[in-house]
C-alpha cells in the first residue's frame, strides 16, 4: 500500500466526527424484507412446526394401507391362502357336517339343538 507523507497524528485516523457521520448514515438505512424472504421464513416456520406436529391425516393410514398391514401381519399372501382354505373348510363343515361330527353334536347338545341349527328342510333354498 502506498503511504502518503502524512503526519503521524490523528490525521492517520478517520476523525471521530467523520466516523460518527458514517455510522449515523448506516444506522438510518432500513431495508424492509422482500415478500419472497417473508415467504421463505414462513415456509421454515411451517416445516419446523410440521416436524413437531405431524397432521392427523398423515398419521392415519388409509383403508388400503390398513388391509396391506393386516395381510403382512398375518404372514403375507401365502399364509393368507392357507387361512382362506381353513376358513372355507370350516364354513363347509358348518353347512354340511360329516355324520361323525353330527353324532358328537347330538351327544353334546341333544337332538333338539341339532334340529335347530341344521333343519331338515332346504336351508338355502338350493333344492327345487
Amino acid at each position: 500500500m502506498m503511504m502518503t507523507d502524512r503526519h503521524q497524528t490523528d490525521d492517520d485516523a478517520l476523525d471521530m466526527e467523520a466516523l460518527d457521520a458514517l455510522l449515523a448514515e448506516a444506522r438510518a438505512l432500513q431495508s424492509p424484507p422482500a415478500p419472497d424472504l417473508v415467504a421463505r421464513i414462513l415456509a421454515d416456520a411451517r416445516a419446523a412446526d410440521l416436524a413437531r406436529h405431524p397432521p392427523r391425516a398423515a398419521r392415519r393410514t388409509s383403508a388400503l394401507t390398513g388391509l396391506r398391514g393386516l395381510i403382512a401381519a398375518l404372514g403375507g399372501w401365502p399364509a393368507l391362502g392357507g387361512l382362506s382354505a381353513a376358513t372355507l373348510a370350516g364354513l363347509w363343515i358348518g353347512i354340511a357336517p360329516p355324520a361323525a361330527l353330527d353324532s358328537v353334536v347330538a351327544q353334546l347338545w341333544g337332538d333338539s339343538v341339532s334340529v335347530t341349527l341344521y333343519p331338515e328342510d332346504d336351508l338355502f333354498g338350493l333344492e327345487g
Binding site: L29, P33, D49
Partner: peptide
C-alpha cells in the same frame, strides 16, 4: 407458535424480520 399457531409465526415474522434484516444489512 410452538403450539402450532401459524398466525403467531406470521406476527413474529412481521415484528422481527425487519429488524434482523436491518441489523444484518448494516
Amino acid at each position: 407458535y410452538a403450539q402450532g399457531d401459524m398466525t403467531a409465526a406470521r406476527l413474529l415474522t412481521d415484528r422481527l424480520a425487519p429488524r434482523a434484516l436491518a441489523q444484518a444489512a448494516r
